[in-house]
């Protein structure tokens, strides 16, 4: 794909044709910045950029923007996750400017889990925009140098714009059209939902390739290693939009409890090795939830280390 439009290190690496590697850190439920810095320290030499989640599962946490600034001050490359649940278009645009003022160059546009999952079940949700409209908004601010209201922005934000895609949600027949729609809205990179059902993902990628979509967007395959058979069952039955095949649960349950975590890492490594061969996969997004110390092992064992210097 053509040359980089933003100063994003992730964009440069992807456009240079390297497989990108991203991971993510959840901010703490308190004010201690060390919580985020320690997680970042564990993965910083093995990834190109680090997502900071935005009040994930609607639990109130230290904000994504402040956490991204902590990473930036460490010399790292943050990806600002932004959900449309909690802010209207004034606050979203304002936070985009705030992030850009710290030269945060990556953003992931999301809808966000419903607030009923979190600690403020009685709160309002905003959803002034949806995730596609947030993509349009940030592209408009960057490319036109204008606010949604039409006024010029002095020193417009310069963000590499990402979004999520879930190849496994229903109905399947609109999964690829939905990707096309996000591309039409202006998305430049995609981080997918955790992939456990590789056959279904392969089918989604095939359909995306047929429509030429893999030439228009960088798709980073999402992976979360399972810590135990219990976690696999939980993900299968309780987490919305997750597709965990029975064979995977069986494989984890088939090894002794104390070895299940290692088996989970092995499965993740095998998945990446298979995905590396899949045409259109341009990188990996490794979400090792509260298990960041395992990211280096996964990256090294899959031959994705050392990371390119951009």
């Amino acid at each position: 794909m053509s040359e980089a439009k933003t100063p994003s290190k992730l964009e440069k690496i992807l456009r240079a044709g390297h497989l990108g590697v991203t991971s993510e850190c959840g901010p703490p439920r308190g004010t201690d910045p060390d919580a985020i810095k320690k997680k970042a320290e564990l993965i910083k030499d093995h990834v190109d950029a680090i997502n900071i989640t935005d009040n994930q599962t609607s639990m109130t946490r230290l904000c994504s923007l402040a956490s991204c600034i902590h990473l930036k001050l460490m010399g790292l490359e943050p990806i600002l996750q932004m959900v449309t649940r909690d802010r209207n278009r004034i606050a979203l645009q304002s936070d985009i400017l705030g992030a850009a003022s710290f030269d945060i160059h990556n953003m992931l546009c999301l809808t966000g889990d419903h607030q009923s999952f979190g600690d403020c079940k009685q709160g309002q949700n905003v959803h002034d925009l949806d995730s596609m409209q947030l993509i349009q908004t940030v592209r408009h601010m960057r490319d036109e140098g204008k606010f949604l209201g039409g006024d010029d922005i002095k020193r417009p934000p310069n963000m590499f714009v990402g979004a999520a895609a879930n190849p496994f949600a229903d109905p399947f027949e609109i999964r690829v059209p939905r990707l096309a729609k996000k591309i039409a809205a202006g998305v430049e990179f995609i981080q997918t939902q955790c992939i456990y059902n590789l056959e279904k993902f392969e089918e989604w990628m095939r359909l995306a390739r047929e429509r030429g979509l893999t030439e228009k967007v960088f798709i980073l395959a999402g992976l979360t290693p399972m810590k135990s058979a219990g976690m696999a069952k939980y993900m299968k039955n309780r987490v919305p939009g997750m597709d965990v095949p029975d064979e995977l649960v069986k494989r984890l349950a088939g090894v002794p409890k104390e070895k299940q975590a290692q088996e989970g890492i092995d499965i993740c490594v095998e998945s990446i090795q298979r995905l590396k061969e899949m045409e259109g996969v341009k990188g990996f997004h490794i979400m090792a939830i509260e298990w960041e110390e395992k990211v280096p092992e996964i990256v090294e064992r899959t031959g994705l280390h050392p990371r390119p210097k951009n």
């Binding site: 809808t111 966000g112 419903h114 949806d130 949600a169 229903d170 919305p240 939009g241």
Partner: peptide
């Protein structure tokens, strides 16, 4: 839609149901 999404469905829809309740059909479905 529990999130009044104009370009849905969100990633939480599962088996045609909304993420907030298995008894609620996803509007976008």
């Amino acid at each position: 839609c529990a999130k009044r999404i104009l370009n849905g469905p969100c990633g939480g829809s599962s088996n045609g149901k909304c993420e907030i309740s298995k008894e609620l059909t996803c509007a976008w479905h």
